[in-house]
Amino acid sequence: MKEEIQEMEGSVETEKPRRKGGEERPLTTDERASFVILSLYMAIFCICTFVYWDSLVLKILGVTSGAGGIFLFVAAFFNTEAAKKSNSIHPLRSYLISLSITLLELFSIRFVAGIIDNMVWSLVVAGGGLLVALVVFRKALVQVATTLLAIVFLFVTISNRHDVLVGHMKFKDAVRQCGHVVFQIGPIKDVANLLLAGNYMGYLSRIDYRDVQINMLATRIVAQSHDDEVVKTREILDFVSNEIHYVSDPGDGVEYAKDPISTLIAGGGDCEDQTLLLCSMLETVGVKTYIAFTDDHVFALVRFSRRNPVPGVAPHLFVDGIPCYALDAADPGASIGRCASAPHAVKRVFDVRRKAPVEFEIAP
């Protein structure tokens, strides 16, 4: 009997106390980060209810949300009741690493996709890289990305506060402006431009102004130009439009773009081939060019460093407010400023060197 009593007492002593539901403990790092991020979302929602929306119900929800956000923010930094910290699933370094990985991923995509001509493979590289980063860092990566978007939205709202307060900027306008700001960030803009370039990359990747033979030929043509941009442009345009004859692609509905050397050897090509050769030759002797695409035509644009370079010739388009003149190599006897396509027919304009789309205007 005594032995049974002793065994029962021993089992009671060894039984571990259960944790009470109301017992306080310190927040883990990922919980603190989640609280801060959530408080940011709630604060932005509160601001939106007062500056973008007129509904009384939404304003009440906004005040409630703002108060809850303040509570979460305070709790994230002043929750120190317990003496011992618990382990964090996502320590601070995970968030720092996630941000670094996000930027590194963008630069990697920019580099890899830049050397891939096929749009499908570019999308596979971009999507696959982001998916791997998302799988590895999961919650931390999503939190970093959404926090950046929230901060950008807040920045847009504050920087346009006058338009917001008088009602000129609505919520959807702010979201649209937020998208514009995000895609102006260097690496993000580069990746977006690569994806936007899409099928045009098949043409842009053919340009090779660093080719030694292209440089030698162009240099010999402009040897007597005294390095004048306009003179060099005229001489090279004369050569391409008169010596490289227009020859259509096979009529199977597929566009074929030849590299400049192949076009020179063939002595002919369609408007894409002639334009790629023209841009390569101009760029290799220091003349800035762009490629313009319409629904059924391709031609070059040239930008000169001095104002009014060709008297009596009007600019075709303006890139960054700077006049650009048309060069239509498919036109025998072409001249600066003359083009078969009207300015309003242009769909895309690409920077030859950066192989990226640029914004353009018909009038400054």
Rank of each mutant, 00 (worst) to 15 (best):
S225D: 09
R206A: 11
V230N: 05
V181L: 15
D227A: 10
K189N: 15
V230K: 05
K232V: 01
T219Y: 04
R210M: 09
D208V: 04
Y203C: 06
R206G: 00
D208F: 04
V231S: 10
K189P: 01
I207W: 04
Q224L: 10
D228M: 06
L196F: 14
Q184V: 08
I185P: 02
A197C: 12
A223C: 03
R206Y: 04
Y209V: 04
G198P: 03
V212L: 13
V182A: 14
I236L: 11
D211G: 10
V230F: 07
R206I: 04
R206N: 08
N193E: 07
Y209A: 13
T219Q: 06
V191P: 03
E229L: 04
T219E: 05
Q224T: 14
Q184K: 12
D211A: 10
L194F: 03
V231P: 00
S205Q: 08
L237N: 05
F183L: 15
V230C: 07
N199K: 14
L204T: 00
V182I: 15
E229T: 00
V191D: 05
N199W: 10
L194D: 09
D238R: 08
Y203G: 05
R234N: 07
E229R: 02
D228H: 10
A192Q: 08
I185W: 07
V182D: 00
N193D: 13
Y209P: 05
D208G: 02
D208S: 10
R210T: 13
L217R: 11
Q184E: 12
I207K: 01
I221A: 01
